[in-house]
């Protein structure tokens, strides 16, 4: 052991400036939470009452009205799946061009990149329920509005991730094909596509999985699918039927997730 230094040395985890910034951030966070907690309108009685009400709700939901499935739920469930699938396909058709234009290495034109990104951001910023409200207003209630809502919400998601996948590709194959005199089409098909193929399919599958969940609620605003059945049962306070719908959604969501996992294993 060397002899102890005359003055005791101090040690701090962060420098003074850094500590100040962190402290300020913490303070701001706490202040925000406190402000939100104080001004939000929560009726305490409702909170105390919640467990009892929850229990009451569960009691009313039991037994689940399975008999309702064939005539009231099945059609809606199938429609939901079709909304999700068709919506994803339509979104794919629309998203690929924007993804190609947004990728800076494939499309080295900053104004075009910016425009494509703007479209993609706009699509993502609007919730699928809002898209559904818009399309219900345009095309009237029904599955068509739902499918378009899913498609328009998905364009941003798919386009962004496809664009990023293209930007992450290795330059080597592209340079090799360019050196061999390949055109843009050949470049995309032979140099970029083989590189992004696994990412592409996993992005599509992921979005389809999300869309199955999202399309189940679109019926609440009149855009078709099983959400319509849910809305009807809720408005009539038929809790056993609500439970039936929830069970159906739950099962489909689980099956969709399992299916995606399996398909992903096969094709990747």
């Amino acid at each position: 052991m060397p002899e102890a230094r005359p003055e005791a040395r101090q040690w701090r985890r962060f420098g003074a400036g850094e500590q100040l910034v962190r402290f300020a951030v913490y303070l701001l966070l706490v202040a925000t939470v406190v402000a939100a907690g104080r001004s939000v309108e929560i009726i305490p009685e409702f909170l105390y009452d919640a467990p009892e009400q929850m229990q009451d709700l569960l009691v009313r939901m039991w037994p689940v009205d399975f008999a309702h499935y064939p005539k009231g739920v099945h059609a809606g469930l199938m429609e939901t799946l079709q909304i999700a699938t068709l919506g994803t396909l339509l979104a794919l058709v629309l998203a690929v061009p924007f993804g190609l234009l947004a990728a800076r290495n494939l499309t080295p034109l900053p104004p075009v990149n910016f425009f494509a990104r703007l479209v993609l951001v706009a699509s993502r910023s609007v919730n699928s329920l809002v898209w559904a409200l818009l399309f219900v207003a345009v095309f009237g209630p029904g599955a068509l509005a739902g499918m378009l809502a899913i498609a328009f919400r998905s364009i941003g998601f798919l386009g962004k991730l496809i664009g990023e996948a293209i930007e992450e590709t290795a330059k080597g194959p592209v340079e090799a094909l360019t050196a061999a005199g390949a055109g843009t089409g050949a470049l995309i098909w032979y140099a970029y596509w083989p590189q992004i193929r696994p990412a592409f399919w996993s992005i599509v599958l992921l979005r389809w999985d999300i869309n199955v969940r999202e399309s189940a609620v679109l019926g609440l605003v009149g855009a078709g699918g099983i959400g319509m059945a849910l809305d009807t049962a809720l408005n009539l306070f038929q809790w056993e039927r609500v439970a039936m719908v929830l069970v159906a959604i739950f099962v489909v969501v689980i099956i969709a997730e399992l299916a995606v996992t399996q398909v992903r294993k096969r094709i990747l």
Binding site: M1, P2, A4, R5, A8, R9, Q10, W11
Partner: peptide, 8 residues
């Protein structure tokens, strides 16, 4: 003391 030890 621990911090002093660590510096040493």
């Amino acid at each position: 003391a621990d911090i002093e030890h660590a510096f040493a």
